[in-house]
């Protein structure tokens, strides 16, 4: 399956998942951001540790920037990119 289609299907399925109203759209947005991060090639995501690291960093960045750049398109992708870049940087350093 092409990565674009895989990410879009994940986002669409996530958008139908009902969460308590108090969370707003955040869970769906987090799923979509995770789908973007998962668009990496297998050379970057080599195992579950890498996936876990990206998820934890991505969740942290998402939480910290929740109220910043609200309404800016591509914000979720930028969060995913930050998480993936931090993994690449960490690998380059150690």
């Amino acid at each position: 399956m092409p990565v674009v289609l895989a990410a879009a299907v994940t986002g669409l399925l996530g958008s139908f998942w009902h969460w308590p109203k108090k969370f707003g759209n955040h869970p769906q947005a987090a799923i979509y951001a995770g789908a973007f991060a998962g668009m990496c090639s297998s050379a970057i995501i080599t195992g579950w540790e890498a996936l876990l690291f990206i998820s934890v960093v991505g969740a942290g960045v998402y939480t910290l920037t929740r109220n910043i750049f609200e309404g800016f398109g591509g914000r979720l992708g930028a969060i995913a990119f930050t998480a993936v870049s931090s993994l690449v940087l960490l690998r380059a350093l150690f």
């Binding site: 951001a33 973007f36 991060a37 668009m39 090639s41 398109g73 992708g77 930028a78 995913a80 990119f81």
Partner: peptide
Amino acid sequence: LEGVGGALGCSAFISVAVSH
């Protein structure tokens, strides 16, 4: 940036930020 997840979204974010 081929194969780096989120690069597409990041590019979109940069373009939106530039126009803003």
